[in-house]
Design a protein around this nucleic acid. Structure first.
Length: 455
RNA sequence: GUGAUUGUAGCUCAGCUGGUUAGAGCGCUGGUUUGUGGCACCAGAGGUCGCCGGUUCGAACCCGGUCUUUCACCCCA
């Protein structure tokens, strides 16, 4: 006999967890649909050529590769082996598990460009896999809920992303959180005005850690990454301003005065906020974060990140605009913007904050219990009638002691048990017992149906 | 990928510098209660101490490897 086990970083979801996950999923789905997004799905596996090179060097390492079927070694020769893993890999694996939903979506858009009506708004809720080392709030298999719109560069999309995030969090009962927003063009502008044009990549990576490790450490990292002292010096006022309660847009207009692209980024943010105002919306929870960077290299415009306050979990949602994601698949000039909710992290956050409702709203409402064959037959009849009336009900399947039957209902959290004994059969009633209060009354079937239909 | 950390009954954990048959609480099964769960009392079942190897007269305990858990870095939902 072998001990059963799970692969590292994966989990089973039991009935309670699934009820909770479905609650989160339904809230998100409902919101996406309300905003006009249509659902699609793509395969769990993609050709490796679709996936590699889209997430940076680190990302390629985190891809799960699928060994070719059959004799996977037949194309490998000794020379490949002597050259190491990088040379051998393409010959033994040509498929991989998807790393996110955005790249498969880009692939889908390009392959179906003639059938799709643009702007195309799609949502997608599926698991993704990363060969990461698991830790708190980080799994090797987890769900993403993406909503993206491609084929328009309208800033209405950016505004609507903010509105969708707010609606979902309202529905989930999460109230203390911030939607951080920035624009890659602003980061490009910053690198220009400090005299390190073209280095926004490393600048972004370093500056993103500001609230985590502090200015001193970031400064060190920048120097290590080859930024000269003068440039780092020039960054000082920005870092200071980012922590102060001032009008960041106004600050950026001055700070980025010498950078056309930087000012363009500021303008985009400004317009996004104006659109929201025209829609009659305020900017609650929205926070312009001048040092928000995000790692993914394909972002070119707005970038988002959502952090729930007072919890130890990382960001629960993120996204941004990408101008040329479909370009690598041969369709250029299509701008897209989208974001993603991490269900597993939202789950962890809600658990940490104790936000899940106690009772299960989809569980059985009544269980039928009985003492003997006669009662069993009577109960089977009643069961059909209850279900016909739309009442979630079940019968204890084995003839056994009343104690056992009640125990089962009690443990399963079923609130009512309908007991079928000789007396009840004779009077055409049910002895309906409330398991919370312990009170038991004899009710006619009509009364029972009335009672539960009203709930 | 780098550096730590964890693993003993279904669950949460004790287990002394290595020394007979490895314990507790909760849970589980049965009983006190043959038309009634929760509470109480009584009895019982359940463990190759993650796995493999080594040191030792003797290993849950020491050493090596491996898997797993958690955490930091990197990166990210």
């Amino acid at each position: 006999m072998q001990k059963p086990s799970l692969p590292k970083g994966t989990r089973d979801f039991g009935p309670i967890q699934m009820a909770r996950r479905n609650f989160i999923l339904e809230t998100i789905k409902d919101t996406f649909q309300l905003f006009g997004y249509q659902q699609i799905e793509t395969p769990a596996m993609e050709n490796l050529s679709t996936l590699t090179g889209k997430y940076g060097e680190e990302g390629d390492q985190l891809l799960f590769k699928i060994l070719n079927s059959g004799d996977f070694l037949k194309k490998v020769d000794l020379k490949d082996l002597s050259e190491g893993a990088a040379a051998t890999l393409p010959k033994v694996a040509e498929k991989g598990l998807r790393y996110d939903l955005t790249v498969p979506f880009a692939r889908y858009v390009v392959m179906n460009r003639n059938e799709l009506t643009f702007p195309f708004k799609r949502y997608q809720i599926q698991p993704v896999w990363r060969a990461d080392r698991p830790q708190k709030g980080r799994y090797r298999e987890f769900y993403q809920c993406d909503a993206d719109v491609v084929g328009t560069d309208s800033l209405v999309c950016e505004a609507e992303i903010i509105l969708m995030i707010r609606r979902v969090f309202l529905g989930l009962g999460i109230s203390d959180y911030s939607i951080k927003i920035n624009n890659r063009k602003i980061l490009t502008g910053i690198s220009e005005v400090i005299g390190e044009a073209g280095k926004e990549g490393p600048l972004a990576v370093a500056i993103d850690k500001l609230d985590k490790i502090g200015w001193e450490k970031v400064r060190q990292e920048l120097t290590e990454r080859g930024f000269n002292d003068e440039a780092v010096q020039k960054l000082g006022p920005l870092v200071e301003a980012s922590t102060q309660e001032i009008d960041h847009l106004a600050f950026l207009k001055i700070f980025l005065a010498g950078s056309e692209i930087g000012l363009q980024g500021v303008k985009e943010l400004e317009e996004t906020f104006e659109i929201m105002q025209t829609m009659g919306q305020d900017l609650a929870k929205v926070q312009l974060d001048m040092v928000l960077a995000r790692g993914l290299s394909y972002y070119t415009g707005a970038i988002f990140e959502v952090k729930v306050n007072q919890v130890s979990i990382g960001s629960v949602s993120g996204g941004g605009r990408y101008d040329n994601l479909t370009g690598v698949f041969g369709l250029s000039g299509v701008s897209g913007v989208g974001f993603s909710f991490g269900v597993d992290r939202i789950y962890d956050v809600m658990e940490e904050l104790g936000l899940f409702p106690q009772e299960d709203s989809q569980g059985t409402q009544v269980m039928l219990a009985y003492f003997d064959e006669k009662g069993f037959n009577y109960a089977l009849n009643i069961l059909t009638l209850l279900r016909a009336a739309g009442i979630r009900s079940e019968i204890y399947p084995d003839q056994s002691k009343m104690k056992k039957q009640l125990d089962y209902a009690s443990k399963k959290g079923i609130p009512y048990v309908g007991i079928c004994g000789d007396e009840e059969i004779a009077n055409k009633t049910l002895a309906l017992k409330n398991l919370t209060s312990g009170i038991q009354e004899n009710w006619t079937l009509d009364q029972v149906i009335d009672h539960f239909s009203g709930v």
